[in-house]
Design a binder for these strands. Sequence first.
DNA 1: TCTGGGGTCCTAGGACCC
DNA 2: TCTGGGGTCCTAGGACCC
Length: 430
Amino acid sequence: MGCGNQCHSSVIGPLFALVDCNNFYVSCERVFNPKLHRRPVVVLSNNDGCVVARSEEVKALGIPMGIPYFRVRELLEDHQAAVLSSNYTLYADMSDRVMQTLATFTPSLEIYSIDEAFLSLQGLSGASSDVGRRIRRTVLQWTGIPVSVGIAPTKTLAKIANHWAKNHADLEGVFDLSRTECLPSILEQIDVEKVWGIGRRLSEKLRPLGIRTALHLAQADAGWIQKRFSVSAARTVLELRGQVCFRLEESPEANQNIMVSRSFGQPVRTLEHLQEAVSSYLSRAAEKLRQQKLCAQILTVFARNSPFGSAPFCAPSASFIFETATQSTLEMMKAAQTLLPRVYRPNVAFHKAGVLLSGLVPADKVQPNLFDNLPVRRRDSRLMQVLDRLNAAKKQVFFASEGIRQPWRTIFRCKSPAFTTRWSDLPIVS
DNA sequence: TCTGGGGTCCTAGGACCC
DNA sequence: TCTGGGGTCCTAGGACCC
């Protein structure tokens, strides 16, 4: 690096580590299928639509994140790439293992996404970069997943440190930005769009103003940025200067919305099939709602055609407000049946539909309504409990309204087995 | 032919009230 | 009838994240 020596006294101020799994979905697949090593691998989104994870070999081919698969299929074939559908059950289980491993290092842990966590290293003894290396080694050994670790006094800088660790092989996956004298020269090499919280739109507006790198942004006037853009952008400026604006959120707030939406395996043109799909999504959404011990006041149903087709974009939606917040799938399905005719359009080829539950309240804090039918509520509640218990491990019982043939169902053409969550799919070592 | 899913936060603008 | 300011709440839409 040639950036001067890093000293190793213990740290007093706040210190964050961002641990990010490398190419997470691809890494999960490689743990159970050694043939995927040293070979280009991609994982695709639902319906095998877009590239959502790429191995290093694929990145080297210049294939960007999120590109539609059909546009790069030939290129991938030319390089004998392995192409896999998403196996969310596997990734969720592997994520749990990684997070449990991280929790052994510190209780101050924020699970930020399926493949990322922030840790507070404040007060931990020893050199922070040694801790980083230990984290990396342990996660790899216990789960098989390679991670990168970025360490810095703010979350935004930890993100940058992590990014730097990923892009400099000599660092072996760990970079401690809090102990470097060359922060400005690093920020100078980072495009402003790469900064956490600055997206494409914002960077397009910043560049003409001369703010093209993370360093430019760090040196900008925070008050002016707030007036011109937003308070969040101003916070990012301060964070780049080492001033904490985003704290660790160890016990996250309850969700404000629960959404289940999917693109269809093939376009839906009939009210009947739209009803099936919406019933099935609603059934899943209500399950999530009960898992989180919440009730919903508002149900929104929406559907849309493809934004890429020649037909004008069409995205009707309709909402239902319950007299009393509910967690009963039955009650919600009844409501959905009244909403769907308002959403359905003959002559529209629907490409996607979804349900949104909002106005969420804890189940034990629901205000009962004067005209509530309590016996029905209690009966429904018992029924839902039984349903959830039956479906806990594997879906065994479903509503007739969800349909049987389900021609709209999401397609996964090349999905790997459920290595870690189904006995029959257990990998065998011979 | 074929373009993901699930979230959060912020702001602007309108309605309404005093 | 005319004139004015300040505050809150709600919603839609935009931007961001992975």
